[in-house]
């Protein structure tokens, strides 16, 4: 079964970006994963300066150079630096090889500051991957919840969103995004708790669930198990493992002249 991984990072490995992507690809090969979506650099910055943003994106661009047949890049932006973010979007996506946006914890995603980024993304057919988590132990100051992403998605029905970690507290997150057909649930990054994928498929439909690993912080084993181990149909597994992400990225890949098989 073909597997596209919508959630990978360059952190955790030593070496140049090229070497780090090489290590990710080698591990992916070992585990039967065909394509990787990579975002953010070796060092994670909660609220990156424009310089830190550019440096993180440069690492990904460097890493993709020799591995573009195995990996895609998502541009890391910070709504607190809107002009710099839009310039990065132009450099990395509109004029560069990247195919989507990553927003992390700098700003709550239902802030009006995010609207201009979403509008540009929708025009370029670039999906937006928004980290979300709802922690009973307390969120980071700018950390978004799935409910906040649902509010953003309601304002932008023309845009496509991936709800990172399915809200973290996925039993809440899945409910929050359920009414919004333009929001997809990322399975990556949490524990391999049984029932997670089954609930996502039951409430959202298999067409709105996307495999992601959050590698290398997480184990491929624990993340692949969420799909391999779920009591869902083989067709649902095929959609989650590759077809849904492929469908989301096809418009922008076509614009860039990248063939999709």
């Amino acid at each position: 079964m073909e597997i596209w991984d919508g959630h990978c990072h360059l952190s955790g490995y030593a070496g140049t970006p090229d070497e780090r992507v090489g290590k990710l690809v080698a591990l992916a090969d070992r585990m039967g994963v065909d394509r990787l979506c990579i975002f953010m650099g070796a060092n994670f910055h909660y609220d990156p300066t424009p310089e830190e943003m550019r440096a993180a994106n440069d690492e990904v661009l460097d890493g993709l150079r020799n591995w573009h047949h195995h990996a895609f890049g998502f541009v890391y932006l910070n709504p607190n630096h809107l002009d710099a973010s839009l310039a990065e979007f132009a450099r990395c996506v509109e004029q560069g090889p990247m195919v989507a946006i990553k927003l992390w914890v700098a700003q709550h995603c239902d802030s009006p500051d995010v609207d201009a980024i979403v509008t540009r993304a929708a025009a370029a057919k670039a999906p937006i991957f928004q980290h979300t988590w709802q922690k009973i132990t307390g969120n980071l100051p700018g950390e978004s919840t799935a409910e906040e992403l649902a509010r953003l998605a309601a304002r932008h029905p023309e845009a496509t969103f991936i709800c990172g970690h399915a809200g973290g507290d996925w039993e809440n997150g899945i409910r929050a995004i359920r009414p919004h057909a333009n929001v997809y649930a990322d399975l990556g990054g949490g524990d391999p708790t049984a029932g997670f994928t089954e609930m996502a498929v039951r409430e959202l439909g298999a067409e709105r669930v996307i495999f992601g690993s959050d590698i290398p912080g997480r184990s491929y084993a624990s993340q692949l198990a969420k799909v391999y181990g779920a009591q869902i149909t083989e067709e649902a597994k095929r959609l989650i493992f590759s077809e849904n992400l492929k469908r989301l990225l096809t418009p922008i890949l076509k614009l860039k002249g990248v063939p999709v098989y």
Binding site: Y220, A225, Y228
Partner: peptide, 16 residues
């Protein structure tokens, strides 16, 4: 840690 965790998680660690 079955059944709370998917069994495949630990099993696949032997392959990873």
């Amino acid at each position: 840690y079955a059944p709370l965790f998917y069994f495949a998680s630990s099993w696949l660690k032997l392959a990873e």
